[in-house]
Design a protein around this nucleic acid. Structure first.
Lengths: 346, 346
DNA sequence: AACGCGTCGTGAAACGTTTCATACACCTGT
DNA sequence: ACAGGTGTATGAAACGTTTCACGACGCGTT
C-alpha cells in the first residue's frame, strides 16, 4: 500500500542503503543526492515502517505504563509525569488500563512483551509473586513499581509514605487542640488505607483518643454513612475532628454534617487525603494530604530509563516521597472547647 | 536475547514453518508434534516477536486514541468506552496525550503512522484542514473525530449536541419561573461553550432575559469571579438563576454565593454542565447536563472498526448524541418571587 | 499393483529496514 | 607516478515472522 524505501530509492535513482543513510546519518551523503532523495520521499509520501525498523533493531522505542484505572486522577497525574520525563528521549509512552482486573493486566503484559517494549511502569493488580509480571522481569524487561510493594530488591519502585501522611494529619489535629479524633476509611486490605491509619494512630498515641469508623469503600456515599454513625453517638463520645482515608470520604462526611446543621470546622474539623482538584472547591475548602503524583510518574520514568540505558550495572532503588499537609478552612483552629488539660497543667 | 522461533524449531526437532503453524493454525499439526513444540516453547520461554509479525502482515493490531488531556474526566471516560468496544477484537488501544499542544499532536501522529496503526480516534487540537491529520487520512488511515467538526464528509465523527444541552438547561430554568437568567462561561472560541450558550439563548427567547458573563477559562476560580460580578449588580438587575458552561464554573459560583450568604437555590438557582463526579457531592448537589461520554468512546471505536473492516465500501457517518439534564437541589423550584407576570395575565 | 487421497511437514520467499564491508573516484603530498 | 586518504555510494546479509507450493507417507479402493 504505502511506498517503501525501495520505491524511494528507485525514484531517486540511488540504492536502498543511500536512502537509509539520508534518513539516519544525513551527513554521510552528498548534498545533491540528499536533495534528490528527500524530494522523492516528499513526492511519494513515504513513511518509515516502524515494524521493520524495530525488527532490525531488536527492540522498540516505547515504554508502557499500566494503571489500575485511567479514570482516577491519581493515575492520570502519574501518567502526565511519566510523559514529561520521557518527552525528550524520543520514547513514546503507551498507556494501558488494567481496570483492576487480573486478566486484563495479564493480557496487556503479554502484548507488551510481544511488542518488546523497553520497559514497564506498573501498579500491579495483585502484588504477589509468581505472576505474569515476574515472568516479564525474569526475561529481562525493566520494570518499575508505582505506589506498590517497596520491599523487593529485584526492581525499582516509587511510592509515597502513607504512614507519614497519616501522621502529618494526626499531628495537625492534635496540635489544634483536638482530643477525640475519628479515622474514617476502609477496607484495611488496601495498603494505603492501613498505612494512613497507622500514621494517625502513631500521632495520637498518648495525645488523643482514636475512634475507628470502618467503611466498605472509599466513596462519597461511604463518607455520608460514616458521618451518620458519628452523629448518632452521644454528644460526649462524639469526636471533634475526623481524619478521612481519602477526599471522597471527606466530602461525604462534610456534606452529611452540613446537612445536619453541624458546623465545619467549629463543631467538627475534617482532614482529607489526596488533595483532589475539588478538595479546594468544596463548600468548606478541605484540608488534605497532598501527594506529589506527577513527580511520582516523572521519577518512575527516570528510574526506568536509567535501567534501560545501564542495562548491565544498574542498581535497583526504592524512592519514597513525602506527602505534604495542605491546611484549609475545614480544619482551621476551632474555638477552644472542653479543655481537658488546662494549659497550666503542663 | 530472547529465543526466536528458529531455536524453538531446533529444540523441538521440527521446521520453522511447523512452529508457526502450531501458533497460528494448531489444527493443521499432529497432536504429538504439537505437544513437542509447545513444550519447547515453554522451556525456552519463547515470546512471539510482534514487529516481525506486523512486518509480515503489513499492519498492526492497535488503534490509537489521541486526547487533549488525559487528566480530564471527559476524556478518560471516552477512553474507557473505546477500550470496552475493542476488548473482544484482539485489538489494543494506545492512549496518546496531546496536552492541547499542536506540536505534540503532530509528533504522536507521526509515530502512530510509522507504527501503521489500524486507525485513530482523535479530538484534534486544531480542527482546520491541511494539518498533519489530513495527511494521515489522505494516506489511508481510518480516522474518527471525537467531539469535533461534525461537518466533514471525509471521515466519521461522534459528538454530543451542545446546543440541545444548553436548551435543556434553559427550558428547565424558564419552566421553574425564572425570568432573569445569566450564562456564565468562556471563551466563546471554544465551540462547546458557544454552542451551549446558543442553546440557552434559544430557550430564553421571548421567555426570559439573558445576562452574559464572560470568563477567560472554565475553572473554579473563574466561577468565583463571575459570581462576584453578579452579586455586585443592583438587586433589581440581579439574575435569579445561573447557567454555567461547565461544572467547575458552577462550583465556583456556588462557593462564592454561599460565602456571601446568598442561598442556593432559594435566592439564586444554578445549573452546571458535564455532570462531573463531584457535581452530585457538592455542598448543594448540582443540577447539571450529562453527556454520554463512555458511549461516545464506544461508538467512536465501533465506527472505526467498521471502517477498518469494510475498507472499501464504508460510508462515513456522523453520530450525534443527546445530552440529558440531571435536576438536583441547586435548581429545585424556588419559592415564588417578584412575579412580574401574574399568572392571570396569560 | 497401481492409483488417488488425505494428513503432516518442509523449505524458501517475502515483508522493509539497518548496517557493514567493499568499491570507486578523486585529491594530496612525497 | 604512487601510496594513502577522504568522501560517497553500493550490495548483501540479517532481523523473526507468515504463507504457500510442494513432497513424503500411509491407507483404502479398484
Amino acid at each position: 500500500m504505502t511506498a517503501s524505501i525501495k520505491e524511494v530509492a528507485r525514484h531517486a535513482g540511488v540504492s536502498i542503503g543511500t536512502v537509509s543513510n539520508v534518513l539516519n546519518r544525513p551527513d554521510l551523503v552528498a548534498e545533491a543526492t540528499r536533495r534528490r532523495v528527500l524530494d522523492a520521499i516528499a513526492e511519494l509520501g513515504y513513511v518509515r515502517n516502524d515494524s521493520a525498523r524495530q525488527l532490525r533493531a531488536g527492540r522498540s522505542r516505547q515504554i508502557a505504563i499500566v494503571v489500575l484505572d485511567v479514570t482516577n486522577p491519581f493515575f492520570t497525574d502519574v501518567i502526565r509525569g511519566a510523559e514529561a520525563a520521557v518527552d525528550k528521549h524520543g520514547v513514546m509512552v503507551v498507556v494501558c488500563n488494567s481496570g483492576d482486573d487480573d486478566e486484563r493486566e495479564r493480557r496487556h503484559l503479554e502484548l507488551l512483551e510481544e511488542q518488546r517494549v523497553r520497559g514497564v511502569l506498573i501498579t500491579p493488580v495483585d502484588d504477589s509473586r509468581g505472576s505474569r509480571l515476574e515472568q516479564l522481569i525474569r526475561r529481562g524487561t525493566p520494570v518499575v513499581l508505582v505506589d506498590r510493594g517497596a520491599g523487593r530488591h529485584s526492581l525499582c519502585s516509587v511510592a509515597v509514605d502513607d504512614v507519614l501522611g497519616g501522621r502529618l494529619a494526626g499531628d495537625h489535629l492534635v496540635e489544634q487542640g483536638h482530643r477525640r479524633i475519628a479515622f474514617v476509611g476502609g477496607p484495611l486490605s488496601i495498603a494505603q488505607v492501613a498505612d494512613r491509619r497507622a500514621g494517625v494512630t502513631q500521632a495520637l498515641e498518648g495525645n488523643a483518643e482514636l475512634i475507628n469508623v470502618a467503611t466498605p469503600n472509599l466513596t462519597v456515599g461511604a463518607g455520608r454513612s460514616a458521618a451518620r454513625e458519628l452523629t448518632a453517638l452521644p454528644a460526649a463520645d462524639r469526636p471533634t475532628a475526623v481524619m478521612c482515608a481519602n477526599d471522597l470520604i471527606a466530602l461525604g462526611v462534610l456534606q452529611e454534617l452540613t446537612r445536619q446543621g453541624i458546623r465545619v470546622p467549629q463543631d467538627i474539623a475534617i482532614v482529607g487525603y489526596d488533595d483532589i482538584e475539588y478538595a479546594a472547591a468544596a463548600a468548606v475548602p478541605l484540608s488534605s494530604v497532598r501527594q506529589p503524583r506527577e513527580q511520582l510518574g516523572r521519577t518512575a520514568a527516570q528510574l526506568l530509563l536509567e535501567e534501560v540505558d545501564n542495562a548491565g550495572q544498574h542498581q535497583h532503588r526504592h524512592v519514597v516521597f513525602q506527602p505534604e499537609l495542605v491546611v484549609r478552612e475545614s480544619s482551621a483552629r476551632p474555638a477552644r472547647r472542653r479543655p481537658r488539660q488546662p494549659s497550666i497543667a503542663s
